[in-house]
Design a protein around this nucleic acid. Structure first.
Lengths: 116, 116
DNA sequence: CAACCATATCGACGGATTTCAATTTGTTGC
DNA sequence: GCAACAAATTGAAATCCGTCGATATGGTTG
């Protein structure tokens, strides 16, 4: 269960049917903060950007270490955080791991700001 | 100059006129990360939420310490981070400091995700 | 099986972040 | 001026985060 998936189930169970706008509960705030924490690092923003900008829509770790000028373990670490947040999808084919944007995930994250 | 204002001037000077989508530069990524860093804390999300939910659209520090169960210096610290990020506006009237959402700031932040 | 390659994980280090208690600043009212 | 109050700042402690080197895992190829 990624952070964004957890948030979507929260919405189902919460109270946004009519018009009342109670402030964010501590629990909801913590869940949303997980997503923004994943976005709160310049190198992770660049990873998302590079994956998004690529022709094929996907990239492997070896394509990402050079433009970021970071070691391979560090890039793997950042990618894991983005996957755990529900922003990236990871597919292993052979020796390589290909990462792609989860469809709609960035829009969902943007929506978290609109519904604060 | 807040983080969001800096980002808006970046847009003016950058290359988004036609269609090419070069990946985020290190500098751009760092600027955007500043905004998401401000959003990456559950207590700060709650502060934004409480200010937004309030009738008058503004709140002072003394209104915010109790619902967050944090000390006054800590709340002041979080509010300063949100002001520096360009998300909140601070207006001092008498002894009290009133904080309100900067109009459009949350939308701008959401837009940063759409244009990665 | 053995060598190799891409990726993931581990352990550690340095720097940033969150929080609080104590103090300071600045304003109001006596 | 002085007492009282709201807010900001300071300093310190605990925790968290980003990074790296070393190592482990797992698939591919000879």
């Amino acid at each position: 269960m990624t952070a964004l998936q957890t948030l979507e189930s929260e919405v189902d169970a919460s109270c946004c049917t009519t018009s009342g706008k109670p402030a964010l509960s501590a629990k909801e705030a913590q869940q949303r903060a997980l997503v923004f924490k994943a976005l709160a690092d310049p190198n992770r923003l660049r990873l998302l950007s590079i994956v998004k900008a690529g022709e094929s829509g996907e990239a492997c770790v070896c394509d990402l270490t050079e433009p970021l000028d970071l070691g391979q373990p560090t890039v793997s670490h950042h990618l894991k955080i983005l996957v755990d947040a529900g922003l990236l999808h990871r597919e292993k084919r052979g020796t390589w791991a290909y990462f792609s944007l989860v469809p709609g995930a960035l829009d969902d994250a943007a929506g978290l700001l609109a519904t604060l």
